[in-house]
Write a protein that binds this DNA or RNA. Structure first.
Length: 179
DNA sequence: TTTAAGATGCCC
DNA sequence: GGCATCTTAAAC
């Protein structure tokens, strides 16, 4: 998914962001995943459906978005943690309360949803359909990708150490690492 | 029914 | 390091 484009056709502008950071959550076997042990609730339900749909949820005051992965009944998901603005930068600045630093607009999972005006209304929406879809971007070679443990899951036992965060080396729009 | 924690971000 | 703010899971 790294290098692919998220496109959101809003009524104001077309907003486009290149994916530069993701995290993998492996369904039933991953203690850090919401779907650990196949836990199926109103929130996690969409992960048990067909792949390619939007799994979004609210975390504190923010919305976080995922792409559902794996076949039906296999609740995997990929969290989109950061994008690099490609189009609609001025609208993103407005959406982010006039944040000045362009590197601070979309470098986190809660920041990018606000910049790109992606809300909980997209729960279950398919990522192949307008007005919110993923399109072909650039191909990324393996040597351009760096990995690390995932962020913000320190209380997830062994899973906290799995190197399932993926991001583009030296890209200034990647989020700041923290535990 | 109640409570505590959370795949965060911003301010001090 | 604290706190906003709200959903959800799990304990009572």
């Amino acid at each position: 998914m790294l290098g692919k484009l998220i496109v959101h056709e809003t009524k104001e502008q077309i907003l486009v962001g290149k994916i530069v950071e993701t995290e993998a959550y492996q369904g039933s076997n991953d203690e850090a995943a919401h779907s650990f042990k196949n836990l199926r609730t109103k929130r996690t339900d969409i992960m048990f459906k067909d792949p390619g749909r939007v799994y979004c949820y609210q975390m504190h005051t923010h919305v976080l978005i995922n792409v559902v992965a794996g076949p039906a009944e296999t609740p995997h998901a990929i969290l989109i943690r950061a994008v690099e603005p490609v189009a609609g930068l001025d609208q993103m600045i407005l959406n982010r309360s006039h944040i000045k630093n362009k590197f601070n607009l979309t470098n986190g999972p809660g920041k990018l949803t606000k910049a790109m005006d992606i809300s909980m209304a997209y729960y279950g929406h398919h990522w192949s359909q307008k007005p919110l879809y993923i399109s072909k971007g650039i191909n990324i070679n393996a040597f351009e990708i760096e990995t690390s443990p995932r962020i913000g899951i320190a209380n997830s036992g062994e899973a906290a150490h799995y190197p399932w965060r993926f991001f583009l080396k030296h890209n200034p729009y990647v989020s700041n690492y923290r535990k």
